[in-house]
Amino acid sequence: MTTDPRNSAALPAPLTLAQLPTSVWVTAQQDARNQRRGRYTPASAAHPAKMLPAIARHAVATYTAPGDLVLDPMCGIGTTLVEAVHLGRDAAGVELEGRWTAVARANLQQARTAGATGRARVRTGDARRAHTVIGAEHYGRARLLLTSPPYGASVHGQVRSTRESGRPGIGKFDTTYGDHPANLAHAPTDDLLEAFTAILTSCLPLLAPRAYVAVTARPWRHHGELVDLPAAVIAAGQAAGLVPVERCIALLAGVRDGHLVARPSFFQLKNVRAARTAGVPMHLIVHEDVLVFQTVKPQVTGHENRPDTAHRRSA
Rank of each mutant, 00 (worst) to 15 (best):
S265Q: 11
V272R: 10
G258D: 10
I234W: 10
P264Q: 03
I249A: 04
E246F: 02
L252P: 08
Q268I: 00
A262Y: 00
E246T: 02
N271C: 04
R263E: 03
L269T: 01
V272Q: 04
A236L: 08
R247K: 12
V261I: 11
I234R: 10
A240W: 12
R256K: 14
R256Q: 14
A274P: 10
R247V: 00
C248E: 07
R256E: 11
A239N: 13
K270L: 10
A235W: 11
A235K: 14
C248G: 03
F266R: 12
V272T: 05
A274H: 05
G258R: 12
R273F: 03
R273S: 03
V245W: 02
G237F: 10
A250K: 03
Q268A: 11
I249Y: 02
A232T: 06
A275P: 01
A250F: 01
V243M: 06
A240E: 15
L252H: 11
A253K: 05
A239M: 13
A262V: 00
A236E: 13
R273V: 04
V255W: 06
V272W: 07
P244W: 01
H259S: 12
V272F: 10
S265G: 09
V245G: 07
V261Q: 08
G254H: 07
E246K: 01
I234F: 06
F267E: 07
A236M: 14
F267L: 13
L242I: 05
A236S: 13
D257M: 15
G254F: 07
K270D: 08
P244H: 04
L251Q: 08
A274T: 08
Q238W: 07
A232K: 09
R273N: 09
N271D: 08
K270G: 08
Q268G: 02
V261D: 14
A240S: 13
G237Y: 04
F266Y: 15
G258C: 13
P264W: 01
L269F: 00
L260F: 01
A262I: 00
Q238L: 10
R263A: 04
A250Q: 05
R273T: 05
V233N: 03
D257P: 15
V245E: 13
A253H: 04
Q238G: 06
L242W: 10
L251W: 05
G254C: 08
L242F: 07
E246Y: 00
A239S: 15
L269W: 01
L260Q: 01
R247C: 03
H259F: 12
G258P: 11
A274F: 10
F267Y: 06
A240Q: 10
R256W: 15
G237Q: 04
A274I: 04
R263S: 09
A232L: 15
V255E: 09
A250D: 04
A253N: 10
P244S: 06
R256L: 15
Q238A: 05
S265W: 05
D257V: 15
L242H: 09
V245C: 05
V261C: 10
P244M: 00
V245T: 10
C248N: 09
L251T: 06
R256V: 14
L242A: 13
V272A: 06
A240T: 14
A232Y: 09
A274N: 06
L251K: 03
N271H: 09
R247E: 02
E246P: 02
K270C: 11
F267N: 05
V245F: 07
A253Q: 08
L269N: 07
